[in-house]
C-alpha cells in the first residue's frame, strides 16, 4: 500500500493529464452536440500539450534561454536547463490546434446554415428524409 501511494505521489502529473484526457474523450464520444464535441477535442489537446511540456521538466532547471557568453564558452550544463524540444513541438502543436479549431468552427457554421441545428440526432434525421 505504501509503495502504491508513493508511486502515485511521484507521478501525480500524469494522473492530472489522464483525468483531463478522459473529460475531453468523454465529451467527444458521449455528447450529441457538435460544439460540445469540438470543446472536448480542445480539452483533449490541452491535456496532451501539458503532458509533453511536463516531460521536459528537470528539477531545479531554468528556462531554456541561456546566457550568450556562457553558451559561446561552452560552459552551459544540460542538467541546469529544461528540455527545449517538447516546448518547440508544443508551440507548433498549439498553432495546429488553432487552425483545426478555426476550420471546425467554419464547418459547423456551414452545417448550421444547411440544417438549422447542431444536434447530431436532428441532423441525422434531416439527412435521412
Amino acid at each position: 500500500m505504501e509503495s502504491i501511494v508513493g508511486e502515485i505521489v511521484a507521478k501525480y502529473n500524469y494522473w492530472i493529464y489522464v483525468v483531463l484526457m478522459m473529460i475531453g474523450f468523454y465529451a467527444m464520444i458521449g455528447k450529441r452536440n457538435l460544439v460540445k464535441k469540438l470543446l472536448g477535442m480542445n480539452i483533449f489537446q490541452t491535456s496532451i500539450i501539458l503532458f509533453f511540456v511536463s516531460t521536459g521538466v528537470k528539477k531545479g532547471g531554468g528556462i531554456p534561454i541561456v546566457d550568450k557568453y556562457q553558451g559561446l564558452a561552452g560552459t552551459v550544463e544540460a542538467a541546469s536547463t529544461v528540455n527545449p524540444l517538447p516546448h518547440v513541438l508544443m508551440l507548433t502543436a498549439i498553432v495546429v490546434g488553432v487552425s483545426v479549431t478555426g476550420v471546425a468552427l467554419a464547418v459547423l457554421q456551414r452545417i448550421y446554415r444547411e440544417y438549422g441545428t447542431l444536434e447530431e440526432d436532428e441532423i441525422l434525421e434531416k439527412i435521412q428524409r
Binding site: V95, V98, S99, G102, L105, A106, Q109, R113
Partner: peptide, 17 residues
C-alpha cells in the same frame, strides 16, 4: 502569415463568410 490568418479567421467566422 499568422497575423493575417488570425484576422481572416475572425472576419470569416464572425460574419459567417
Amino acid at each position: 502569415t499568422v497575423m493575417s490568418i488570425m484576422v481572416l479567421l475572425y472576419w470569416n467566422l464572425s460574419s459567417s463568410g
